[in-house]
Design a protein around this nucleic acid. Structure first.
Lengths: 144, 144
DNA sequence: CTTCCTGCAAAAGTTTTGCATTAAC
DNA sequence: GTTAATGCAAAACTTTTGCAGGAAG
C-alpha cells in the first residue's frame, strides 16, 4: 500500500547519503496517514516517545532529502507534511485563530493560470521560482 | 505626501483604543519607505535604538489595528509591511536561500480567478476566508 | 489624574546543538 | 569496523511579558 512511498523516500535519503531507519519510516508513516499537515507536538505524542531532538533532526533530514515539506503558520509550532510530489498538489486553509492547516485543492484552471503568471513574473523580475504557495487565510469551521 | 497614510493609521489605532505616538509614527514611516517587507533586525538598526520590546509591542499593536501585516518566512525573523489596503494588493517572491521577500503584482485576471476559487472553496469546506496569500518560492537574483 | 506607552531585564516558547551510546551498513 | 542515528540534556534564537518610570490625553 505504502510500499512505493517508502521506496521513493528511501531513494531520496540515499541520494543525500542518509539511511532510512525504522524511526524515519514510522515518521513518514505518520505523515502519510494524516490528512493534514501535522504539528510537532502531535508527532511527539503520536510516536510514543521519540525524543524531540530526534524528531526535529529527522524532519530536517527528510526535508533536505525532498521527502517532507514544512509549513510555517503565523504562530506556534511548524507543521509537516509529505512532499507534494509524493501526494498530490494542493493548497492550504490556514486558520487565523487556532493555527490549524487544512489541505484543499483548487480548480485546475486556476493552477494553470498561476503557472502562466509564474513565467511572466520570472522573466520580468529575474527571480527563479521553483514552486508556488496559495493559501486561504481565515477561520476554520470550529473557530468561526 | 504620507499625510493621508498617517491619518488612516491614527484612525485605526484610535478605533482599538491606542495612541499614535512618535515612535509608532516613525515605525510606520520606516515601513512606508521600504519597498519590501522589513525584517526585525533592520527595524532595530534603522530606528536608532528603539528597544526590541517596544518594537515588537508596537508592531503587534499596529497589526491588531490592521495597519501592519506580518510575513513569516521559513527561517529567521518575521518581516513586516504596511497592510495591503494602505498600499496595494500584491504578492511575494520568497527566496529559499537568503529569506528575503520581494513584492510583486500578478495579472488581474489571476486575482479574479483566485477570488472565484475562494468562494467555491468556502461553500465546499465551511472555511471562511478573509484573505489569500499567493507566493512564489525560489531563488532571488543574487542567490541564483 | 488616569490610562497608556516606554525601556530594561528577565522569561517563555520553539528549534538547534554537543556528546556519549547504540544501531546500520 | 566505520560511519551515521539516537537520546539526553543544555544551549540558542526569536518573541513575549513584568514591572517601574514617564508621557499623553
Amino acid at each position: 500500500m505504502t510500499g512505493k512511498l517508502h521506496m521513493t523516500v528511501e531513494e531520496r535519503l540515499r541520494a543525500v547519503g542518509q539511511r532510512y531507519t525504522s524511526k524515519r519510516r514510522a515518521l513518514v508513516e505518520a505523515l502519510a496517514t494524516s490528512p493534514n499537515p501535522v504539528a510537532v507536538p502531535d508527532l511527539l505524542a503520536g510516536d510514543r516517545g521519540l525524543p524531540q531532538s530526534s524528531l526535529y533532526r529527522n524532519l530536517s533530514v527528510l526535508e533536505q532529502a525532498g521527502a517532507v515539506h514544512r509549513v510555517v503558520p503565523d504562530e506556534g509550532f511548524a507543521r509537516y507534511e509529505l512532499a507534494e510530489d509524493l501526494t498530490q498538489h494542493h493548497h492550504h486553509l490556514v486558520c487565523r485563530s487556532c493555527g490549524t492547516v487544512q489541505d484543499v485543492t483548487v480548480p485546475r484552471g486556476l493552477e494553470r493560470q498561476v503557472e502562466r503568471a509564474r513565467s511572466e513574473v520570472e522573466s520580468r523580475t529575474g527571480f527563479s521560482a521553483v514552486s508556488h504557495r496559495l493559501d486561504l487565510i481565515g477561520l476554520c469551521r470550529s473557530c468561526a
